[in-house]
Design a protein around this nucleic acid. Structure first.
Lengths: 229, 229
DNA sequence: ATTATATACTGACTTAAGTCATTGTCATTT
DNA sequence: AAATGACAATGACTTAAGTCAGTATATAAT
């Protein structure tokens, strides 16, 4: 998920690919590039909402934090995707925390600029709607899995997804490189690192996966799919 | 949540309130009214996606079901709201199950009709985006709560929300009428009816709520808020 | 009113997964 | 090569919440 970290130029941001020359000039004039280091916070839940961000390089996590400090990661955002767009429409303050998972470059677009752009650009609207729709779909699955599936099933689901993104799904031995720590993966799957360790061990013991460092080889894709439902 | 079941006419559907006379005529010509009885299924996960629905009267639940038959309710939809709009943008089949919670009247709009309408109507786009944004926000909270909070905290959060919707939040004793069964509420909160019964009992024992049949009176709003975080 | 059927509540028990503490394994620096 | 620090794995134990079974209380039907 974090591997595609090559830098993207503004013109390559799909969200902006259909803008008129004038609109594009306006956006570049009013937006600004923000460089953040690994673990830097972009904003916190409850902060005043000022505008949206596009990830050009690196990756960030969008997450909620409990009173006791436990975190649940809603989304990982990688280039060339957007975050901080929801409050454009709902109003209110920042609804979650955002932190950089690695050194990253973001483009910040002030909310009013973006809304003006949106009013006159149906293609931009369609992109926002489509992005929202995909996120709703993935969040729906995540929420349902938290309620209906056990840790090992959620882990299996995550691995299947990553395999599909990796393009190795049809190879003899599909594989992925884990680009995040076990603890981060645990936060994303709504559990703790120990439970992920134990679930991974079960998958290894049952000859469903094999691990070489951070690389996970899928030895039995069917069994894994079956676990993921 | 289900109490506002008075029937809404097509002109009163906010989604359509800004349509031109021509567009409105077109929509009414190509859409159709569907009457469903309590417990009727509107569609199932995996069914071919044909278009979206607007709830004019009654209410439906959007839910996912596990292999073992346990259900998790993602949303309740009441008038004048929409469902089945996500696949318009993501493509693919119906992503969840939908069942009527009571006798209901729905308006069905075929997907291509709606997409045509959308292409020439920026106000309609804005409404869709806003609806998506609110749903993303509420689903984010639901998912995070499943991971970070216990049953009693999620129940407290639900009660707070219902109280706020009821308009009795500032009365001496805020109250709501539970319009759904304990089992349905449990599915919405990602648990089972027994656990909701026990959580309710705890709230009663601690003098946070009092119950008269289906009506719940909040005796200590602050304590309830504190439980909900 | 009386029975029937749903829904809700309660207790006893089990289990998945969390907590805590310890040890093991890397990767980086000196 | 040794040492440091971060991350990962494992074992022992606890706990929230699930399962199962039985009872009580509604709501509806005769």
């Amino acid at each position: 998920m974090v591997e595609q970290s090559s830098k993207i130029t503004l013109k390559e941001v799909p969200l902006f690919s259909e803008l008129s020359v004038d609109d594009f000039r306006q956006i570049t004039a009013l937006s600004n590039l923000i460089k953040v280091k690994k673990n830097d916070f972009i904003f916190h839940e409850g902060d005043e909402f000022k505008g949206l961000f596009i990830v050009l390089k690196g990756s960030v996590k969008i997450y909620k934090i409990s009173r006791e400090g436990k975190e649940y990661i809603l989304h990982f955002i990688t280039p060339p995707n957007v975050f901080g767009d929801v409050p454009l429409f709902t109003g209110g303050d920042c609804p979650a925390d955002v932190q950089a998972l690695e050194d990253s470059i973001l483009l910040f677009v002030p909310k009013n600029e973006f809304l003006n752009l949106l009013a006159n650009n149906s293609k931009l609207s369609l992109k926002i709607m489509t992005g929202f729709a995909y996120r709703l779909k993935s969040l729906s699955v995540k929420a349902a899995e938290l309620s209906l599936s056990e840790v090992i099933n959620r882990l299996a689901g995550y691995l299947i997804n990553e395999i599909e993104k990796s393009g190795t799904a049809n190879m003899l031995e599909p594989h992925i490189k884990l680009s995040i720590s076990i603890a981060t993966l645990a936060s994303y799957l709504g559990t703790i690192s120990e439970s992920i360790s134990r679930a991974m061990k079960k998958l290894r013991d049952n000859k469903i996966i094999r691990m070489h460092g951070k690389t996970i080889f899928i030895e039995d894709f069917n069994k894994l799919k079956n676990l993921a439902r």
